[in-house]
Computed example of a mutant assay.
Amino acid sequence: MPKQRGRAPDTIEQDFLDAIERLKAGLPQHPKHKEWLKKRGSVPISISSVAREAGRARGLIAAEDSKYQKVRNLVLLEAGETGIEPGNRQDVIADLRAQVAELRAELRSVRDHAAYHFKMRSEAEKRVQDYRGRYERLQRKVERSAPRGPVISLFPEDEG
């Protein structure tokens, strides 16, 4: 008995997207595609091959006004078709909003990263100034105490 699949739109769309990835990677699961892979070396990406690989009806992505316009556009893009029209305005707006949200998150991450490095650099510069002052004090101390001997106290509290 064949495996029953859910009817959730996201599951169907995910089946198509997984099929596209498998075909692009050259790892098909459908027996006909495996045979093509042995004979030809690759499986052409088309609406029919993607639907067959996904185990779904090709009518779901074949029509211009299909419910899975995003998948259809991706298949046509992978197949090298030109003049692919985006879906309706709401789809375009939703895609753009998603891109804006991703870019804002990336910008926030980059700003946080830059602030961290600025803070670390400021702290390093302070330590450099501190070490430079210590070095200069020690060098003066060596110059003053050179005639007394080779041992120099590095800590002021040791001197009496």
Results as ranks from 00 to 15, higher is better:
residue 19 A to M: 11
residue 150 P to Q: 09
residue 9 P to M: 03
residue 158 D to I: 09
residue 52 R to Y: 09
residue 24 K to N: 07
residue 144 R to I: 09
residue 10 D to C: 04
residue 65 D to P: 00
residue 17 L to E: 05
residue 13 E to K: 11
residue 138 L to S: 08
residue 26 G to E: 02
residue 96 L to E: 09
residue 58 R to V: 06
residue 96 L to C: 04
residue 129 Q to W: 01
residue 83 G to N: 09
residue 112 D to C: 06
residue 123 E to V: 07
residue 63 A to I: 03
residue 44 P to T: 01
residue 153 S to V: 06
residue 30 H to N: 15
residue 75 V to K: 13
residue 46 S to C: 13
residue 37 L to M: 12
residue 142 V to T: 00
residue 114 A to N: 14
residue 95 D to C: 02
residue 83 G to S: 06
residue 113 H to P: 00
residue 144 R to W: 06
residue 126 K to N: 09
residue 35 E to A: 10
residue 137 R to A: 11
residue 90 Q to W: 07
residue 3 K to V: 13
residue 38 K to H: 07
residue 106 E to M: 00
residue 74 L to A: 07
residue 63 A to P: 03
residue 83 G to T: 09
residue 60 L to D: 05
residue 76 L to Y: 11
residue 18 D to K: 14
residue 99 Q to W: 02
residue 91 D to N: 05
residue 117 H to W: 14
residue 82 T to Q: 08
residue 28 P to C: 02
residue 99 Q to K: 14
residue 109 S to Q: 07
residue 25 A to Y: 06
residue 152 I to L: 14
residue 85 E to R: 15
residue 74 L to C: 01
residue 85 E to M: 14
residue 90 Q to S: 11
residue 111 R to D: 07
residue 83 G to L: 09
residue 106 E to L: 00
residue 35 E to Q: 12
residue 44 P to Y: 04
residue 101 A to I: 09
residue 17 L to M: 13
residue 60 L to G: 00
residue 81 E to L: 01
residue 75 V to M: 14
residue 11 T to R: 12
residue 3 K to Y: 12
residue 148 R to F: 14
residue 59 G to W: 04
residue 90 Q to C: 03
residue 99 Q to N: 12
residue 41 G to Q: 13
residue 108 R to G: 02
residue 86 P to Q: 06
residue 78 E to N: 12
residue 40 R to V: 07
residue 123 E to W: 08
residue 110 V to Q: 05
residue 73 N to R: 15
residue 14 Q to G: 08
residue 76 L to N: 04
residue 105 A to S: 12
residue 46 S to P: 02
residue 50 V to F: 10
residue 119 K to S: 13
residue 46 S to T: 15
residue 145 S to E: 14
residue 44 P to F: 03
residue 110 V to G: 00
residue 122 S to I: 05
residue 126 K to L: 12
residue 64 E to T: 03
residue 144 R to K: 12
